[in-house]
Computed example of a mutant assay.
Amino acid sequence: MKSDQPQFSIVGDVSVDLVLGTLDGWPKIGTERLLPRSELRAGGSAANSALAARHLGLSPHLIGAIGDDDLAQWLLLQLAGIRIELQTCSSDTTMSVGLMHPDGERTFFTSCGHLQHLSPDFVLKHLPPAPHGSVALFTSPFLLSGLREGFGELLAQASARGYQVALDTGWPPEGWTSQVQREVAGWLAHCDHLLVNELEAMSIAETQELELAVQRVAALLKPGAHLIVKLGAAGALGHVDGRSTRYATEAAAEIFDTVGAGDSFNTGYLAARLNGAGLDDALAAGCRTAGAILPRFPRKSIAAGELSHCLQPHS
């Protein structure tokens, strides 16, 4: 890759996912259930975004952490073909068990593991000054306690190094307390692209009305920044400079595995922006990318570059 080409860096959570389903009802404690479908794979929002980029034929730069156990070595194999900078931490590898339910909802059980040890110094060491137009996507800061205390300064440093800063906040384990809302407001002042789902947007804005939430959250962003609200099966909404636009998706076939839907959208959207697409085309690319990846099970079967068509504008 030429040094003057825009870079796509992803900073955040890298872990292991065990996806199981479908679980109809909650079993009685002490019993055992057989589930017909399962996949062990690389997980975490940052890894999901990087894998989606690989599926699109891109060359992302993934910065995160791993543990120092055998599972970490397996995890590295799943990220083949991706440029990675992973801090090795003296800890077990973080693992999530995702249980799929018939209504499309998911239940997650996640270990603490290595995620809390990723350090700002490591991130900045591997996030050099970038060519114009580069993007740095930050994911799941609430899970990365080693980054969280100085997270606003980390975003400011990325911006100063030439990156457009993109952020997917994820969900705070402690809930959207007033303290968390103030904390997040400080982060948003550094964002060029904020990528959240509908419930997260309304939680940040303290309202159940999406239109009002969009106005309130947009006011917290830097001038000219793009607020992207992911609406699940309904598509996505984009807002910039006081104007909103929506991209509506067509009804999809039943999907078993919705883990990583938002992460896949993030990659499709940002990849399109890197290629010079406007807001409408980027929303469409994000939805197409998520729509192409989600029906695939197991996900490991998707070849690198197989989904490159998702980034092509549709007439």
Rank of each mutant, 00 (worst) to 15 (best):
L307Q: 05
L34E: 14
H309T: 12
T169D: 05
L40M: 12
R296C: 15
L195V: 07
G113R: 03
D13E: 13
K300C: 11
A248I: 10
H193Y: 15
S119C: 07
T169P: 01
A158C: 02
W171T: 10
Q157M: 09
V16T: 12
S38E: 15
A236T: 12
G175I: 09
A158N: 01
G291M: 10
T177H: 00
W187M: 03
V259D: 10
W74M: 11
H61V: 12
L270G: 04
L124A: 04
V259P: 03
K222V: 05
M95L: 15
L212M: 14
G305D: 09
D70M: 08
A277H: 14
K125H: 12
L58R: 08
L51T: 06
A251H: 10
L23H: 04
S145K: 11
A47K: 02
I228F: 01
A53D: 13
L144V: 06
E206C: 08
F256M: 14
L167G: 01
R288W: 14
P141T: 05
S178R: 12
A225W: 11
G64L: 02
D257C: 04
A272E: 12
S96H: 05
H61W: 14
H226T: 15
A130C: 08
E306Y: 00
T258A: 11
L188F: 07
V19E: 08
E39R: 00
E200V: 02
L115Q: 12
L20K: 02
W171S: 03
A304G: 06
P6I: 10
L155G: 01
R273L: 14
G152L: 05
E250M: 08
L34M: 12
D281R: 01
G260E: 09
N266K: 00
T110I: 07
L283S: 04
